[in-house]
Each structure stands twice: as structure tokens, then as C-alpha cells.
Amino acid sequence: MKKPNFQAWLQQKVSDEPEVILAGKLEYLRLYLTDAMREIRNKAGLTQAQLAQKLGVKQAAVSKLESALKEHELESVLHYLHALGANLLIAVKQGDDLYQASDNEGVLLVDVPDVVVQKALAANMSVREYVRVAVEKFSSEDNGLKTALVKLLESNDSVAVKVRARLGSRTIQEVAVELEKCLSLSEEEDRIFAVKNVLADSMAVAEINRGTSDEFDEIELLDLAEELLEKLAAIWK
């Protein structure tokens, strides 16, 4: 289905009055909605007459629903889609806030992997609720990890002292953010080299500030990276 180019359509208008813009939005919505409805019906292999029979209405009623020239009641559109086994999802955006509504509690505006659906069923929760709880838990754990990283780097632990000696002009919070990204890597070797690179970047800043350009000891950096990862593993299980 080719999506109508609303912006191009609006640019053809000679007026920028609110009433004209609103009329354009209404026409765009009708075009896009009815185009989708016809495509869904065609994919179901039904004619307007056959769908009308399922809905218990006349063919003219279905034809009216599929016309972009007519106004549409939400309830009528829902009946139409329900008869075709389709769901209606609505998103409302205001500034940075996005609100969504659906005629099916388990339907979201994004595709959800089957494994997530199965976990939601096992937890006796709707997909929407399961995803919401999972996001909240992830956010909580994410903040906890940042706090643990900062706390470790600020401590008198011997490894933390070595790391702070290599910070240069970078703050502990900045390094903690970089280390957090390193910990998200799945392979241990990748994590070690990523942490080593964070430490090397910090040392580079320190050396530049001192006006020197000595090469760093790669082995020493790798050893420190491994020590740091061991500390992090101990505090974040």
C-alpha cells in the first residue's frame, strides 16, 4: 500500500489557515484509512458484497465505508475490521508524548517477538502489561548499574584508584557511562577490549594535558581492564 504524501498535498494549498490545514488532515486520514481497509478486504479474498453479508448490511454500506469522500464513525470501522480479523491501533502524538489505543489489549504499535508473547501468557499478563513491567524493571536495573559503577570508581579500592589515575579531565560519571556500554556486550573478550579502549581514551586525554605523547603499555591496560571487569562482576550479579 502506497502511503499518500500528505506534506506534498499540503504544499499545493494556497492557504495556510487552520481550517484549511484541518481539512487537509481529514482528507489525508480518510484516504489512508480507506486504502488500508480495501487492501485488507482484498487480501481476505472477499468482495464488497461478501463482506456486507458477513456484517449483515447492504453492499452500499460497505462501499460507503471504503469511500474517502464519506465521514466514518469509529464503531463502523471497528465492525468492518473485526469481520476481517484485523485490529485497529491509534496513536496520538503531542510534542514528545505518544499515546496509543487499541481494540485489542494484546496488540501494540510495534511487532512483538513470539517469545515475548509466550512469556506474557506464562505470567498470566497481557502483552502490553508484560512489556510495560519489563521496561520498568530494565530501567530500574539500568539506573542501579550506573550507581554501582560510580560507587566503585569513587571508592578506595585499589583498582578504582588505578582507574582514577587515568581519568585525565574526564569525570567518573562520564567514564561510568562508557563502561556501562561495555558491559552490554555479550562476549567476554569484547568486553575486555572495550573497557581497555575506555581506559586508553582517558589516558590519552591525560597525556595530552601533560604535553606528552608516550605510547601506553597495552598489556598493563588489558590487565587493568580485566581487574575492573572482575570487580564489576562481583558487585553486579
Rank of each mutant, 00 (worst) to 15 (best):
K13I: 00
K231V: 06
A61L: 07
A101E: 07
K25C: 15
K151D: 14
K231T: 04
T171M: 06
E141T: 04
L33Q: 02
A44T: 09
A160D: 04
A160K: 02
E187L: 12
A123R: 08
L65M: 14
E218D: 15
N197Q: 12
L222V: 08
R166A: 10
L149S: 05
E27M: 11
Q11H: 10
E207V: 04
W236R: 13
H72P: 04
Q53I: 07
A234W: 06
L46G: 03
L74N: 09
M1Y: 07
W236C: 15
E188Y: 10
V150T: 14
D223Q: 14
L69S: 13
A134I: 06
L29S: 01
E154W: 04
L10F: 10
V117E: 13
L153T: 01
V92R: 03
S155W: 04
A52F: 07
A234Q: 10
L228E: 01
S158I: 11
K237E: 15
N124Y: 05
A61H: 09
L10Y: 03
V107P: 01
A8F: 09
A68W: 05
H82S: 15
R164S: 09
A233D: 13
V175P: 00
N5E: 13
V198C: 12
V127D: 02
S15P: 07
K25F: 15
I90E: 03
L78C: 07
R210W: 07
N156F: 03
L51I: 11
Y80V: 01
L65V: 06
Q48P: 01
E218C: 08
G45V: 07
I40H: 07
S102Y: 00
S202R: 09
D223M: 13
M37S: 06
K25D: 09
T171P: 00
D142S: 15
E129R: 09
L29D: 00
V57A: 05
